[in-house]
Simulated scan of single mutants.
Amino acid sequence: MTSLLQPSGRKRPVANKAAGRRGDNNRIYANPLPLTFLYPLPSPVRSVLGLLGLNLAKIDTPQIHGLFDHATRSVWITDRAQSLILWRRGFFGKGDLSRSEPSWLNRQVNARRAAAENRLTAEELTAKRRAERKQFKLDRARAIAQVAAQAEALFESEGRVVIPALSGPNIPSAATWKPTPQDSSTLPQQIPSEDEEPFPDDVEHLQLTLPEAFFLLWNLDCLVVEDSDANQLLSIQDIWIAFQMAYLSQPFSGPLTLTPRLELDNPFIVNYLVYHHYRSLGWVVRGGIKFCVDYMLYKRGPVFNHAEFSVVVCPVYEDPADEAASTTNLHHAAPFSWSWLSTINRVNTQVFKTLVLAYVTIPAHSRVPEQVLHSPACLQYYSIREVTVRRFIPARMRD
């Protein structure tokens, strides 16, 4: 008897490319952090030791070398192997010549192979589709304008009122429109050379933001930072002060042995608090400038799924007098307007993300001395409050 749920002529579903890609991603990005655990004992022995509350696993901590660049307020990882470790184990940083993953060298190799095989790369195919979509909109607008002009001419000549049609045989649609074929003689022909030039060296580096770099340095102890100007390794205290000085309104160019004037509302401290807060809770934190926010929160990483939450950092002064006397000009420190909030919330709602306002309370100068800013111990005086903002959409929320 033939099942009504499975017609006899239907083939079994086969594994597609997406399933294979997910399997590769699970293998490549298996470690959520640069730290890995080594188990020298076999699994049965580990199970017995686990029942006794013992764990003999060893932690493998990679040693990553970074260069602190004052101009870009970032830490550069120039070694390709170390860059891949940080990207594949936690999605830290971004390639300076790429959108996220440092893939400039791979794109160059693929472009040369595509030219030899006379085919387009993925970037060229995307550009071609965008150009065709733009041409379709122009052709459709031109056809609608022509129909409207004909209706206007009929009204002037015969006095008839004709409503211009927005669809029909003369109006191109997405289903019927075809791009104009290009003449192959006008296209540049790729002639492979017998003596091809060697592939270029990888000139791309991984660029870490200052909060990312300090999280790897202070919490995971897998990063050492060298000052690119002084050519010397920096201690944790020197890095903590140098990262704050990078955000001073007047750049501090003196040696680190001096005592610069630091402020409790330094942008590095405020942003690092939020970054550390969500990283310590297991979220993958990425920059959110694409969606007009400060951070994006991923469950596992951008190669697995889209971000579920977008975070806006909102500093709040404990003492209003400190805000009036401050020269830092913190972003989002002033009360925002409802039009701004509605705009940001609408942008993120359209891409199915929940907006989170992370309020960072800046302690008052009257109860916190300035000397505590010379050590990460000052973070204990700050606090974070979260407010989730959701836009009411009747079509989605009526069930």
Rank of each mutant, 00 (worst) to 15 (best):
V303R: 12
F309L: 06
A333E: 13
A334Q: 15
Y278V: 09
F291M: 08
L281T: 05
Y298N: 04
A321R: 12
R300A: 03
R286M: 13
L297C: 07
V284N: 08
Y272Q: 00
S326D: 01
V274H: 00
F336T: 13
A334P: 14
H306L: 02
V293K: 06
P302G: 04
F291I: 10
V313F: 04
Y272R: 01
A321G: 07
V313L: 09
T327G: 11
V312G: 06
S280R: 10
P267M: 02
F309K: 05
N266V: 01
N266T: 03
N271M: 11
N329V: 14
Y295V: 11
L273H: 13
R279W: 01
F304L: 07
H276G: 11
A334I: 15
D319G: 10
R279G: 02
P267I: 00
V284C: 12
V313R: 00
G301H: 04
A307H: 01
C314L: 05
V285M: 09
N271Y: 05
H276P: 01
V284H: 07
V312K: 05
A325S: 05
W283N: 07
A334T: 15
H276A: 10
P315V: 04
A333G: 14
N266G: 04
E323L: 12
A325H: 02
Y317W: 12
H332I: 10
V313Y: 07
F268C: 04
F268W: 08
P320C: 12
V274A: 03
F268Q: 02
T328K: 10
A334M: 15
L273M: 09
S337L: 14
R286E: 10
V293P: 09
I269K: 10
E318T: 09
Y278D: 05
L273T: 02
E308M: 04
E308P: 01
G287D: 06
L297D: 06
C314D: 01
K290C: 13
R286S: 13
F304A: 09
L281M: 08
Y275H: 08
V285E: 02
G287M: 07
Y278W: 09
A334K: 15
P267C: 01
V313M: 08
V313G: 04
P302S: 05
C292F: 06
M296A: 03
N271I: 03
V284M: 08
E318F: 11
G301E: 00
Y272T: 02
A334W: 14
N305E: 05
R300H: 06
P302R: 00
G282A: 03
P302C: 01
H276K: 12
R286A: 06
E318V: 04
N305R: 02
F336P: 12
L281V: 12
T328I: 08
I289E: 12
T328Q: 12
W283D: 04
N329P: 14
V303G: 06
N266C: 04
E308R: 06
N271E: 14
V285K: 02
H332C: 15
V311I: 09
F291C: 07
P302K: 00
V316E: 05
T328C: 13
Y295I: 12
V284T: 11
S337D: 10
T328H: 05
C314F: 04
V312T: 12
Y275Q: 03
P267E: 01
V303F: 12
R286K: 14
L273S: 03
G288D: 12
